[in-house]
């Protein structure tokens, strides 16, 4: 990470700490804000947050690794999360799954070489009445068919 990037990240975290408060209970909102912007929480950011909230870096890392929606390693610019819980699973998830992996040429858990899309599974999205469902960043798409899913991916590609 460049020094200039570090400085801007530090300033950003300072702003977030000011917004949410210099208290451990601000940790999740701060991490969420960083994750929203960078799609992951950089190592430097974790240390900076720890410093500013007066906790230990490993505690921040511990929290980041606990939650499925927080990441400690860089990912693609768009995050596609396909629901794998039982109702989506029996409603045609399998076909959607293979269409997506065929189209992107990557498996779940991987990122496209151009870093545009990271593919992940997720547990129940609360869309069981409209499955199969997937999340693209914070948007939810339901009643997926293989064609529809590929169309959505093509839009963000």
């Amino acid at each position: 990470m460049l020094v200039s990037e570090r400085t801007s990240l530090t300033e950003e975290i300072e702003r977030l700490v000011e917004q949410y408060g210099k208290d451990r209970s601000s940790l999740l909102p701060i991490l969420q804000a960083v994750e929203r912007k960078y799609r992951y929480v950089p190592d430097f950011a974790m240390q900076e947050i720890a410093l500013q909230l007066d906790i230990h870096p490993v505690e921040v890392y511990s929290v980041v690794t606990f939650y499925s929606f927080l990441h400690s390693k860089p990912r693609g610019r768009n995050i596609v999360r396909l629901c794998r819980t039982i109702i989506c699973d029996i409603s045609g998830k399998e076909n959607v799954e293979s269409a997506i992996t065929r189209e992107l040429g990557i498996s779940f858990g991987e990122t496209t070489p151009d870093k545009k899309i990271t593919l992940e599974y997720t547990n129940c999205l609360g869309m069981c009445d409209q499955g199969p469902a997937m999340m693209v960043n914070d948007r939810v798409f339901t009643r997926l068919t293989p064609e529809k899913a590929v169309e959505i991916l093509n839009e963000i590609k």
């Binding site: 906790i55 230990h56 490993v58 505690e59 511990s62 606990f66």
Partner: peptide
């Protein structure tokens, strides 16, 4: 209060 070890992942 050294803070080197924590549980990670879940």
């Amino acid at each position: 209060e050294v803070g080197v070890l924590e549980a990670v992942h879940r």
